[in-house]
Protein backbone atom coordinates (compact mmCIF):
# COMPACT_ATOMS: atom_id res chain seq x y z
CA UNK A 1 0.00 0.00 0.00
CA UNK A 2 2.73 2.44 0.98
CA UNK A 3 4.52 1.48 -2.21
CA UNK A 4 1.62 2.77 -4.30
CA UNK A 5 1.47 6.03 -2.32
CA UNK A 6 5.21 6.53 -2.74
CA UNK A 7 4.94 5.95 -6.48
CA UNK A 8 2.08 8.45 -6.75
CA UNK A 9 4.05 11.06 -4.81
CA UNK A 10 7.10 10.49 -6.96
CA UNK A 11 5.28 10.57 -10.29
CA UNK A 12 2.37 12.97 -9.65
CA UNK A 13 4.57 15.92 -10.60
CA UNK A 14 5.38 14.44 -14.02
CA UNK A 15 1.72 13.66 -14.73
CA UNK A 16 0.71 17.23 -13.97
CA UNK A 17 3.50 18.62 -16.19
CA UNK A 18 2.28 16.49 -19.06
CA UNK A 19 -1.32 17.62 -18.45
CA UNK A 20 -0.21 21.27 -18.51
CA UNK A 21 1.83 20.74 -21.66
CA UNK A 22 -1.15 19.10 -23.37
CA UNK A 23 -3.45 21.96 -22.27
CA UNK A 24 -1.04 24.40 -23.90
CA UNK A 25 -0.78 22.32 -27.05
CA UNK A 26 -4.58 21.96 -27.25
CA UNK A 27 -5.00 25.73 -26.93
CA UNK A 28 -2.44 26.34 -29.65
CA UNK A 29 -4.06 23.88 -32.05
CA UNK A 30 -7.80 24.37 -31.62
CA UNK A 31 -8.43 27.85 -30.18
CA UNK A 32 -9.31 30.36 -32.89
CA UNK A 33 -8.48 33.50 -30.96
CA UNK A 34 -4.90 34.72 -31.36
CA UNK A 35 -4.50 35.91 -27.75
CA UNK A 36 -5.76 32.51 -26.55
CA UNK A 37 -3.13 30.87 -28.74
CA UNK A 38 -0.45 33.05 -27.15
CA UNK A 39 -1.68 32.12 -23.65
CA UNK A 40 -1.46 28.47 -24.70
CA UNK A 41 2.10 28.98 -25.94
CA UNK A 42 3.09 30.46 -22.58
CA UNK A 43 1.48 27.59 -20.66
CA UNK A 44 3.45 25.16 -22.83
CA UNK A 45 6.68 27.03 -22.11
CA UNK A 46 6.16 27.14 -18.35
CA UNK A 47 5.28 23.42 -18.28
CA UNK A 48 8.62 22.59 -19.86
CA UNK A 49 10.47 24.97 -17.55
CA UNK A 50 8.73 23.29 -14.59
CA UNK A 51 9.87 19.89 -15.84
CA UNK A 52 13.49 21.05 -16.09
CA UNK A 53 13.48 22.59 -12.62
CA UNK A 54 11.97 19.50 -11.06
CA UNK A 55 14.78 17.39 -12.54
CA UNK A 56 17.20 19.32 -10.36
CA UNK A 57 15.24 18.89 -7.11
CA UNK A 58 16.95 16.83 -4.41
CA UNK A 59 15.29 15.46 -1.31
CA UNK A 60 17.15 16.80 1.73
CA UNK A 61 19.09 19.38 -0.29
CA UNK A 62 19.12 23.10 0.43
CA UNK A 63 18.96 26.03 -1.99
CA UNK A 64 22.07 26.45 -4.18
CA UNK A 65 23.67 29.27 -2.18
CA UNK A 66 26.73 28.13 -0.25
CA UNK A 67 26.30 28.48 3.51
CA UNK A 68 28.81 30.35 5.71
CA UNK A 69 30.70 31.29 2.59
CA UNK A 70 32.72 34.15 4.03
CA UNK A 71 32.66 32.98 7.63
CA UNK A 72 36.32 32.38 8.46
CA UNK A 73 37.51 28.83 8.04
CA UNK A 74 36.81 27.12 4.77
CA UNK A 75 35.07 23.78 4.75
CA UNK A 76 34.46 21.17 2.11
CA UNK A 77 31.31 21.61 0.02
CA UNK A 78 29.54 18.40 -0.87
CA UNK A 79 27.28 18.23 -3.89
CA UNK A 80 24.67 16.07 -2.13
CA UNK A 81 23.69 18.89 0.21
CA UNK A 82 22.80 21.40 -2.49
CA UNK A 83 20.07 21.34 -5.12
CA UNK A 84 21.36 20.96 -8.66
CA UNK A 85 21.86 24.57 -9.92
CA UNK A 86 22.34 23.78 -13.62
CA UNK A 87 18.63 23.49 -14.62
CA UNK A 88 17.93 26.72 -12.71
CA UNK A 89 20.50 28.61 -14.77
CA UNK A 90 19.19 27.31 -18.08
CA UNK A 91 15.56 28.05 -17.20
CA UNK A 92 16.21 31.50 -15.70
CA UNK A 93 17.30 32.81 -19.08
CA UNK A 94 14.45 30.92 -20.76
CA UNK A 95 11.85 32.78 -18.66
CA UNK A 96 13.20 36.19 -19.66
CA UNK A 97 13.36 35.15 -23.31
CA UNK A 98 9.74 33.91 -22.96
CA UNK A 99 8.60 37.41 -22.00
CA UNK A 100 10.53 38.87 -24.95
CA UNK A 101 8.84 36.47 -27.38
CA UNK A 102 5.52 37.28 -25.71
CA UNK A 103 6.12 40.94 -26.54
CA UNK A 104 6.81 40.14 -30.19
CA UNK A 105 3.74 37.87 -30.41
CA UNK A 106 1.48 40.56 -28.94
CA UNK A 107 2.94 43.14 -31.32
CA UNK A 108 2.05 40.86 -34.24
CA UNK A 109 -1.47 40.37 -32.85
CA UNK A 110 -1.96 44.13 -32.58
CA UNK A 111 -0.79 44.62 -36.17
CA UNK A 112 -3.21 41.93 -37.38
CA UNK A 113 -6.04 43.57 -35.41
CA UNK A 114 -5.28 46.98 -36.89
CA UNK A 115 -5.43 45.53 -40.41
CA UNK A 116 -8.45 43.18 -40.15
CA UNK A 117 -10.27 44.56 -37.04
CA UNK A 118 -10.62 41.08 -35.54
CA UNK A 119 -8.55 38.54 -33.63
CA UNK A 120 -10.50 35.44 -34.70
CA UNK A 121 -8.59 33.21 -37.07
CA UNK A 122 -11.57 32.17 -39.23
CA UNK A 123 -12.76 35.78 -39.69
CA UNK A 124 -9.25 36.86 -40.68
CA UNK A 125 -9.10 34.05 -43.26
CA UNK A 126 -12.50 34.94 -44.71
CA UNK A 127 -11.46 38.60 -44.99
CA UNK A 128 -8.23 37.66 -46.75
CA UNK A 129 -10.18 35.49 -49.26
CA UNK A 130 -13.00 37.99 -49.60
CA UNK A 131 -10.99 41.08 -50.42
Amino acid sequence: MSGIVATIIAKYNYWIYICLMMIGLYAMITKRNLIKKIVGMNIFQTAIILFYVSIGAKRGGTIPIIEHAHGGQSHAVEAVHYINPLPHVLMLTAIVVAVATLGVALALAIRIYNRYRTLEEDEILSRIRGS
Partner: peptide
Protein backbone atom coordinates in the same frame (compact mmCIF):
# COMPACT_ATOMS: atom_id res chain seq x y z
CA UNK B 1 11.48 23.02 -5.14
CA UNK B 2 14.30 25.27 -3.92
CA UNK B 3 14.86 27.12 -7.22
CA UNK B 4 14.83 30.56 -5.58
CA UNK B 5 16.38 32.43 -8.49
CA UNK B 6 13.88 30.99 -10.94
CA UNK B 7 11.00 31.74 -8.56
CA UNK B 8 12.16 35.34 -8.19
CA UNK B 9 12.41 35.75 -11.96
CA UNK B 10 8.96 34.27 -12.50
CA UNK B 11 7.45 36.49 -9.80
CA UNK B 12 8.79 39.63 -11.47
CA UNK B 13 8.56 38.58 -15.12
CA UNK B 14 5.69 36.12 -15.41
CA UNK B 15 3.30 37.44 -12.78
CA UNK B 16 4.27 41.09 -13.19
CA UNK B 17 5.42 42.29 -16.57
CA UNK B 18 3.81 39.71 -18.87
CA UNK B 19 0.39 40.28 -17.26
CA UNK B 20 0.83 43.99 -17.94
CA UNK B 21 1.73 43.20 -21.57
CA UNK B 22 -1.37 41.05 -21.94
CA UNK B 23 -3.62 43.73 -20.45
CA UNK B 24 -2.04 46.36 -22.70
Amino acid sequence: MGAVDVAFTEASVGAGVSTVFFVA
